[in-house]
């Protein structure tokens, strides 16, 4: 009986993993397709499609996306930590309301947000702001709830006795922030920042309203391209950006982000 259960358990795991990874594997396979149709023939493959990625057509959007995502990660990281510090650590008056306000963008569909931002910028006469500045601002609004929440959780789990111990050892408030509080919440903040980067890098529904023609982010370029053609370049683009995101996650994990947070320890 228990053998049957064990078998079913592992079968379920394998099925779930297959379900998740198979489409990815198909995309990876398709990116090596020897013909311009999206196919996969194991004994005939080519790197040609990846060569195409170095053309400006793909390179420019990729660099723009990286630039925006990096700025979004930095800005939302700084703002998120400051907000969490005020709300959880200092418990400023109305901190609960403040937190609710910061999390509220989560409850509005991204498409609605996109339309709202475009309308808002037009009404106040800042159409010139559309494009990269608007994208950065919008992505920060989108990512801030996650960063703030993660920083706040780290701060809430922070043992106040550590702060008191440092204080009794003569550490001023600035010194305590620098040497105790920030290092302790670093894993949470780094995972928040990684998330902000990914959210910005992959975003479509919000960005689609804010990009300028000819100056589009990578996902929007992909969408535009898909409207007219479907060929293995698409697959190559997706594989490349997947690899890029995984590299980013790996790098942040190396400096003490995700996995430390997931496994609940610092070092």
């Amino acid at each position: 009986m228990s053998h049957v259960l064990t078998f079913l358990f592992w079968l379920a795991i394998v099925l779930v993993l297959t379900f998740i990874t198979l489409p990815l594997l198909v995309v990876v396979a398709a990116s090596f397709s020897p013909t311009s149709a999206v196919t996969f023939v194991p004994w005939e493959w080519t790197f040609d499609w990846y060569g195409d990625l170095l053309a400006d057509r793909w390179l420019q959007p990729f660099l723009l996306s990286v630039k925006i995502a990096t700025l979004v990660a930095i800005i939302s990281g700084v703002l998120g930590v400051l907000a969490a510090y005020a709300i959880v650590y200092e418990r400023v008056p109305g901190s609960d309301a403040l937190m609710a306000g910061l999390l509220s963008p989560l409850s509005v569909p991204q498409i609605v947000k996109g339309v709202a931002i475009v309308l808002f910028l037009s009404i106040i006469g800042l159409q010139g702001f559309l494009g990269t500045p608007a994208l950065i601002a919008a992505h920060v609004v989108l990512a801030l709830p996650f960063v703030t929440r993660m920083a706040a959780t780290s701060l809430a789990n922070f043992d106040g006795n550590l702060d008191r111990a440092a204080q009794s050892l003569g550490a001023s408030k600035r010194q305590r922030l620098q040497h105790i509080v920030l290092p302790m919440i670093k894993p949470g903040v780094l995972s928040g920042v990684t998330l902000a980067f990914i959210i910005s890098f992959n975003n479509i529904p919000l960005s689609v309203f804010l990009v300028r023609p000819g100056d589009t982010t990578l996902p929007i370029t992909v969408i535009n391209y898909l409207e007219y053609s479907l060929d293995p370049v698409m697959a190559a683009v997706n594989v490349a950006s997947m690899a890029f995101i995984l590299t980013v996650i790996f790098l942040f994990e190396k400096i003490g982000g995700f996995s430390a947070q997931l496994h609940g320890g610092s070092k």
């Binding site: 006795n161 550590l162 008191r164 111990a165 009794s168 050892l169 290092p183 610092s266 070092k267």
Partner: peptide
Amino acid sequence: RNLGLVFQNYALFPH
């Protein structure tokens, strides 16, 4: 205040 303090849960800096 230049006073030392020892806590029940030690409160060592884990990092």
